[in-house]
């Protein structure tokens, strides 16, 4: 891990950048994607997450909707991070991310830019914001696997 990624200013800039210029911030009307609607019960976050999963590979992830800085940035970072990864790799990343957000030990290398969100663990009321997109992706992976299992 480079020292740069230990600098709060840099981490802050990562969140800013993903909030102001979110990646994969669109929804495609394409049957190759499966989609889920994630609406937080406790706040206003209300997003759709879609993923194209083929042969155990997450080929693409998109999202859109109403969301605060933390949910937008965290979902944008997630989409960057898991695109092209296998389901197995993505699950590892997701679990490391949850560990970080819950204030537990985690693997920094695996999370790359997502470590910018480590401070959310100290703001319990925002954990839902930081995980809403991730839960969405997890759900899509589960659905995809369940469907493959049936085939």
């Amino acid at each position: 891990m480079s020292d740069l990624m230990k600098d709060p200013m840099v981490l802050r800039q990562i969140i800013m950048d993903h909030y102001e210029y979110p990646r994969h911030h669109k929804l495609l009307n394409d049957p190759a994607y499966r989609m889920t609607h994630m609406a937080s019960e406790s706040c206003i976050d209300d997003i759709h997450v879609q993923a194209k999963i083929n042969n155990g590979i997450i080929e693409d992830v998109n999202f859109d909707g109403k969301a605060c800085t933390i949910s937008t940035a965290s979902t944008s970072i997630m989409a960057d991070l898991v695109k092209g990864k296998s389901i197995e790799e993505a699950r590892k990343i997701i679990n490391e991310y949850y560990a970080m957000i819950n204030g537990e030990a985690y693997d920094e290398e695996m999370l790359e830019e997502a470590i910018a969100l480590q401070g959310v663990s100290k703001q319990a009321n925002r954990i839902k914001c930081a995980t809403i997109g991730w839960h969405g992706l997890e759900q899509l992976i589960n659905e995809s696997e369940a469907e493959d299992g049936r085939k």
Partner: peptide, 10 residues
């Protein structure tokens, strides 16, 4: 500002 809003996480 947005910067200050994000700043609370650091």
């Amino acid at each position: 500002t947005i910067e200050n809003c994000i700043g609370i996480f650091f």
